[in-house]
Nucleic acid binder design. Structure first.
Length: 314
DNA sequence: TGCCAGGCGGGGT
DNA sequence: ACCCCGCATGGC
């Protein structure tokens, strides 16, 4: 067993990013403990960044590595390379995101690998927010790729290979019929030797079609992966939840909802989709609609599981 | 305790 | 291009 050692150190130069907020969003206890976050920077888990909410980071790996490339990747993962001025301008005029963005201008989307982003998408299919994230928590824990960085313990995401070797652990993780889809995604990754840099050069529509070629990956999951892994926002993931919310808030039919959304958010449509789920604490539809009616459209501090607090409970 | 939920594909029209 | 149904779980 090789030992992880610190290979690079530094401090994040923060525009106005709020690292605690960024690390809190849709995260698990083994990747964020309130003080330090752990971010996997490569496909196999050989390179891991540990970053404090104050911005001090260390990059660990078992072998020597190029610091410049990996620090760059860390900035990318934390969303610090994006200029969101245009997104913020729109948000401050928007009834759904105005409150959230004015309260949390330092929010950025934390990205994941394409592989994991697809698994995340599949676990959101036809399930509640909480059920989906519980599945993901179980998957990481059950595959059990625990590692130790000096005196810190954390977990790697399972690799496609791990899944193929032990597909039964997927069912044990409570994924129900989704286990087949996750397994086919794993096979797809091994067979295609996916090159994300090359994928990035393609049009979003083309990437969406490629991802949809995997059985069980449809429009929603493909687009969520574009958002979470590639920071491509022009094609928004719109599920039943968001579709209904759009139709109520902007007074359009559910059929027109997606077009309306894109007409408002343009090239930030996908980012806005995710931001709304955070703003409304991922409440189930009826509660979310009630919150909107009451004008409570920013996260509420409470002792319950929300996108911003789930790291305390899972 | 029966519903039913931030999709999806297959089979109908 | 549509509409409709079943689907594994876990949570209410």
């Amino acid at each position: 067993m090789l030992e992880y050692k610190v290979r690079c150190r530094g401090k994040i130069k923060g525009d106005n990013a709020d690292l605690k907020l960024i690390l809190s969003t849709y995260n698990f206890s083994f990747w964020f403990n309130g003080e330090n976050g752990f971010i996997q920077l490569d496909r196999n888990g050989n390179v891991i960044a540990m970053i404090s909410i104050g911005g001090v980071y260390r990059i660990y790996s078992c072998t020597k590595l190029s610091c410049k490339d990996h620090v760059d990747k860390l900035y990318w993962s934390l969303g610090l390379r994006e200029n969101l001025n245009e997104f913020h301008e729109t948000a401050l005029k928007d009834p759904l995101l105005r409150e959230f963005i004015s309260k949390y201008p330092g929010w950025r989307l934390r990205s994941t690998s394409l592989w994991w982003a697809l698994v995340v998408g599949v676990c959101q299919q036809n399930a509640s927010f909480r059920q989906g994230w519980k599945m993901l928590y179980n998957i990481v824990k059950n595959y059990g790729r625990k590692i130790v960085l000096e005196d810190h313990e954390t977990y790697l995401t399972p690799t496609p290979q791990d899944i193929i070797e032990k597909p039964e652990l997927l069912k044990k993780s409570g994924t129900g019929y989704r286990w087949k889809t996750i397994l086919s995604i794993a096979h797809w990754f091994l067979e295609h030797n996916v090159d994300c840099k090359a994928l990035q050069r393609s049009k979003a529509e083309e990437i969406e079609e490629i991802l949809k070629s995997i059985k069980g990956v449809g429009e929603y999951t493909a687009r969520l992966a574009l958002v979470l892994a590639l920071r491509r926002y022009e094609l928004p993931p719109v599920d039943r939840w968001l579709r209904k919310i759009i139709s109520v808030v902007y007074g359009v039919s559910e059929k027109e909802a997606e077009d309306k959304w894109v007409s408002i958010w343009g090239r930030y449509s996908g980012l806005a989709s995710v931001a709304v789920t955070v703003a409304l604490d991922a409440e189930p539809l009826n509660k979310a609609l009630k919150r909107i009616g009451e004008g409570k459209i920013s996260p509420i501090e409470d002792n319950k599981i929300t996108p911003l607090t789930m790291w305390k409970y899972l």
